[in-house]
Design a protein around this nucleic acid. Sequence first.
DNA 1: AAGATGATCAACCGCTACTCA
DNA 2: CTGAGTAGCGGTTGATCATCT
Length: 258
Amino acid sequence: MEVNMKGISASYQSVEEDDMGFRKGPWTDEEDSKLVNYITTHGEGHWNSVARYAGLKRTGKSCRLRWLNYLRPDVRRGNITLQEQLMILELHSRWGNRWSKIAQQLPGRTDNEIKNYWRTRVIKQAKQLKCDVNSKQFRDAMRYVWMPRLLERIRASEYQPVQPVITSTITQSGMDIQESETMWVNPSYTSSESSAEVQVPSSSDHTESRYDLPGCHVADSSEYGSDLFGLESLESFWNEENMWFLQQQLSDDLSLNK
DNA sequence: AAGATGATCAACCGCTACTCA
DNA sequence: CTGAGTAGCGGTTGATCATCT
């Protein structure tokens, strides 16, 4: 039987059935088309009925997941864009592992996809830096170093303002007004403040003191593996300018907390 | 060329929340 | 109120592909 995995057709032998006779494992083209046909005709919901009446030996849960994560017509495929990466970082800093909630802000992306992105890219980078992904150090690095850089890259590539995100609809005087909020472009870390307007001392002021984040090991360039955010190397984030800026931010935070 | 290792992502699992009889 | 059925969420697993040695 043929199944489609990662865009290629492959023979797959290990589709099995559980004690209840439900099939498990990758979906076949035939199963996909049965599910799509049924939902096209009858609509979503009542997943156990879908499974039964569509002639699928699958659990309702499995049908729901397959539809939402793969078969839905509005599912977006392909790489996570720079804008989406920035949104994920920002929204995760607000909401934590609320993948479904984050996914709602990214049309066409599924919670599964975002979760996978976070686990495979972001957590990996935290590990490489020997930081806990939830540590203040790593979060500050994201907020004050990586996200501004990402924003700069977006602006450089588009050469136009970043699209605001429509977050709510309010009704006023009988008219629907869409209130747009630049929810992920926090002024506190826009590029103008993070780099352009910040006075960076000459390199001689701090060349000797490569900044070690407390409890956070800055890896040698040889330790860097894949490229979070599509940058050439994570090392470029941890250059002296950004280190200096991050150090200032951290010391400001500390003084505020006194 | 082949085996080892790492990265990716679809799918499953367990749990909680919600609905309804 | 309670229990069954269902939907949805987040964590985890495992198959496959890609890259490295």
